[in-house]
Amino acid sequence: MHNKEEITKRVINVFANSFNMDESKVKISDTKKDIELWDSIGHLHLIMNIELEFEIRLSVDEINGINSVENCIKIINKSLDGN
């Protein structure tokens, strides 16, 4: 089992780096609409950074499913537990 709190922290850090934001500005409830640089290219940078950070490989369905910080954390946890 992975430490959920620690994972949340790391996800927020990846969001901040991917979208040029301060960590304190990233909220769990943020969706694609709330983050300015989260467009289609930004999405791919985010996915690549997540895969690098957590050493996981997401499927096309998982990649397409990520549309908020909250469900991103959920999908990462699921992927980590599955390994």
């Binding site: 290219i41 791919l44 096309v60």
Partner: peptide, 16 residues
């Protein structure tokens, strides 16, 4: 291949 279908770019992160 995921990038090819999702992003119309065939490169992986390492490739980029």
């Amino acid at each position: 291949e995921r990038m090819h279908y999702l992003a119309k770019s065939h490169w992986s992160q390492k490739g980029l």
